[in-house]
Amino acid sequence: MSIITRSIAQADREARYLNAGELSAILDFYESGLSRIRLATILAENEQKIVEKASLRFWERCPDTPSNSGNKTYRASCLRDQSWYVRLITYSIVVGDVEPLAKIGTIGVKEMYESLEIPLPNLVEAIRSLKEASLELLSLKDVTEVAPYFDYLIQGLMA
C-alpha cells in the first residue's frame, strides 16, 4: 500500500483530516516520483541483460538445478520467472512500497515452487543473482533505493 493510500486509510479510520506529518510524507513521495520512475526505467530497459547475467551467475553457483539440466523448458521457465521478478521489483519501486512483492511475489510462490520440486534455496540464490546484476547498473545512491526491494523478496522467500 502506498504512503498515500496508507495515510488516507489511517486518517479515515480515525475520522480526521491528514495531519502535517502525513501531508509532508505525501509531498516527499511525489517529489521522489521522478527518481523512482527513472530507476524502474533503468531496470525495465535492461531486463534482458540483467536476466542473462544473473542466470549465468546463478548456474555457476547452483549447477545442479532443474533449469541447468539441459531441459530447454526448465531453462526457459527459469528465465521467464527471473524476468517476472525484475518486473515486480519495478512495480514496487514505482509505488515506493513492497506491496506488489508481498501480494504477487511471495504469497503462494513458495508453495508453487515446492510443488514443482524447485529447491527454494536455489530460488533465493537466483534472486540474489538478479539483485547483483541489477545493482551493477546503478549509482551508489540508487543502490540504496533499489536493494531493499530485492532484500524484502529474498527474506520473504526464506521465511
Results as ranks from 00 to 15, higher is better:
Glu99Phe: 13
Val98Cys: 02
Ser129Leu: 00
Asp142Ser: 13
Ala147Trp: 00
Leu135Thr: 12
Tyr74Trp: 08
Pro63Phe: 00
Val146Ser: 04
Ser55Arg: 03
Pro63Ala: 02
Asp142Leu: 07
Glu125His: 02
Leu138Arg: 10
Asn122Glu: 09
Lys103Arg: 10
Val124Gln: 09
Ala126Cys: 09
Arg80Cys: 00
Val98Trp: 05
Asn68Val: 14
Pro63Thr: 03
Glu145Asn: 11
Asp142Val: 14
Leu120Ser: 00
Leu137Met: 04
Ile118Ser: 04
Thr106Ile: 14
Leu101Phe: 10
Asp142Trp: 04
Glu111Phe: 09
Leu88Asn: 14
Ala133Ile: 10
Leu137Arg: 07
Met112Asn: 05
Thr106Arg: 09
Ile104Phe: 15
Pro119Cys: 06
Arg61Gly: 02
Ser92Cys: 04
Val109Trp: 03
Asp151Ile: 01
Leu140Tyr: 07
Gly105Val: 14
Leu56Met: 04
Gly105His: 11
Val98Ile: 04
Val124His: 06
Pro119Met: 07
Val98Gln: 07
Val143Asp: 10
Tyr74Phe: 11
Leu130Pro: 00
Tyr85Asp: 15
Ile118Lys: 05
Gly96Arg: 08
Thr106Leu: 08
Glu145Ala: 14
Trp84Thr: 14
Glu136Trp: 13
Glu111Ile: 11
Val109Asp: 02
Pro100Ser: 11
Lys141His: 05
Glu117His: 13
Thr106Trp: 01
Glu114Leu: 13
Trp59Met: 06
Tyr91Lys: 01
Thr73Lys: 08
Leu130Thr: 10
Tyr85Leu: 13
Ser134Lys: 07
Pro63Lys: 03
Ala147Leu: 03
Arg61His: 10
Ser67Ala: 05
Glu145Ile: 15
Ile89Met: 09
Gly108Tyr: 15
Ser115Ala: 14
Asn68Lys: 10
Leu123Cys: 04
Ala76Trp: 15
Tyr74Arg: 13
Leu88Thr: 15
Ser69Met: 03
Thr65Gln: 02
Thr90Asp: 06
Ala76Glu: 15
Asn71Ile: 06
Leu56Arg: 12
Ile107Tyr: 15
Glu114Trp: 07
Lys131Glu: 15
Val95Ile: 13
Glu125Ser: 06
Leu120Ala: 00
Thr73Glu: 13
Asp151Ala: 05
Ser139Cys: 01
Val86Ala: 08
Asn71Cys: 04
Ser77Asp: 09
Ile93Glu: 08
Pro100Phe: 12
Trp84Pro: 00
Lys103His: 11
Leu138Phe: 06
Asp97Tyr: 01
Glu99Asn: 12
Glu60Thr: 14
Glu136Tyr: 15
Lys141Glu: 12
Trp59Val: 02
Leu140Asn: 10
Pro148Ser: 03
Glu132Asp: 10
Glu145Met: 12
Phe58Leu: 07
Glu111Cys: 04
Glu136Cys: 12
Ser83Pro: 00
Ser139Asn: 02
Gln82Glu: 11
Asp81Val: 06
Leu137Phe: 04
Pro66Cys: 05
Gly70Met: 07
Leu130Asp: 06
Leu138Tyr: 03
Met112Gln: 05
Ser115Asp: 12
Leu140Ile: 11
Leu123Asp: 02
Thr144Gly: 03
Ala126Pro: 00
Gly70Tyr: 09
Asn68Tyr: 11
Cys62His: 14
Asp142Cys: 09
Glu132Ile: 12
